[in-house]
């Protein structure tokens, strides 16, 4: 069974004439170790899908199962613990705490989870290091550039070996070198066994995924077939010039 499963999930906002169905009948399974990208235009329901997968909102219909447990039968406390321990979430607008430094923001989820402060801190710094901003650890969010804030948010979600990583446009404010670093970090987490979902409108970002799912008007309409192993691709690319 997949680590994350959305089964016929729909979500409506508002009521009566003002009702908007943000997503409809969404089925999505993500295995441990795999990276799935959900790609679609603005307003297609990507953030809605992700907040429901992360138990930040309840679906109007359908079921969400994480690690074999259905969210519909969990208490609020259980869900809060799940979000703390199991889910790393990168918000579209980063959601950093303004009163904490970059390093403290990254270490917070570990500390909340009972990891001793020193250890949490050093894990945080090493995550920031991988994204090239360790020297910013002592700064507060409003002293960082947009791209730096984004990387702090990613580090916070990846740190602490959580099993499900959900990222909303994780490279929105980044140039291509830094997007590459971010995606490499997310992919590395997957290769350690994390299940990850990245939602984006950006094809370059989506191309890092093992599987790309296309969403339009709240419905999943299509998906890619998994790419073959790199070795078999290299043959195709260099074939003609080697056969001389």
């Amino acid at each position: 069974m997949s680590f994350l499963e959305l089964r016929m999930v729909s979500k409506s906002y508002g009521a009566g004439a003002a009702e908007v169905e943000a997503i409809r009948d969404v089925d999505l399974s993500v295995e441990r170790g795999s990276l799935v990208a959900v790609m679609g235009p603005s307003g297609s329901g990507k953030s809605t899908l992700l907040t429901i997968a992360g138990s930040l909102e309840d679906p109007t219909r359908g079921e969400v199962v994480i690690g074999g447990r259905s969210l519909s039968v969990m208490s609020r406390n259980d869900k809060a613990r799940l979000r703390r321990r199991t889910v790393g979430y990168v918000f579209q607008d980063f959601n950093l705490l303004a009163g904490l430094t970059a390093g403290e923001n990254v270490a917070l989820p570990l500390e909340l989870d009972g990891v001793p402060a020193r250890r949490a801190r050093s894990a945080g710094v090493s995550a920031l290091e991988q994204l090239g901003i360790a020297e910013r650890a002592e700064r507060y969010p409003d002293e960082l550039s947009g791209g730096e804030r984004q990387r702090v948010a990613i580090a916070r979600a990846v740190v602490g070996e959580r099993s499900l990583l959900l990222a909303d446009e994780p490279s929105g404010a980044l140039d291509s070198t830094n997007s590459e670093a971010v995606m490499r970090m997310i992919l590395a987490a997957c290769r350690r066994g994390v299940a990850a979902v990245v939602v984006t409108h950006d094809a370059q970002l989506a191309s890092w995924a093992d599987r790309v799912v296309f969403i339009r008007d709240g419905r999943i309409v299509d998906q890619t077939v998994p790419p073959p192993a790199p070795e078999s691709l290299l043959e195709d690319v260099t074939g003609p010039s080697q056969q001389r």
């Binding site: 094809a203 191309s207 995924a209 296309f214 309409v221 890619t224 073959p228 690319v237």
Partner: peptide
């Protein structure tokens, strides 16, 4: 036309997945 566009979009994204893979590898 939207289905036609999606068929091409998927094909292109699949090619991009292959390039990204290759690039990461090499």
């Amino acid at each position: 036309v939207h289905d036609v566009i999606q068929a091409h979009r998927r094909y292109l994204v699949e090619l991009m997945q292959q390039w990204t893979r290759l690039k990461e590898d090499e």
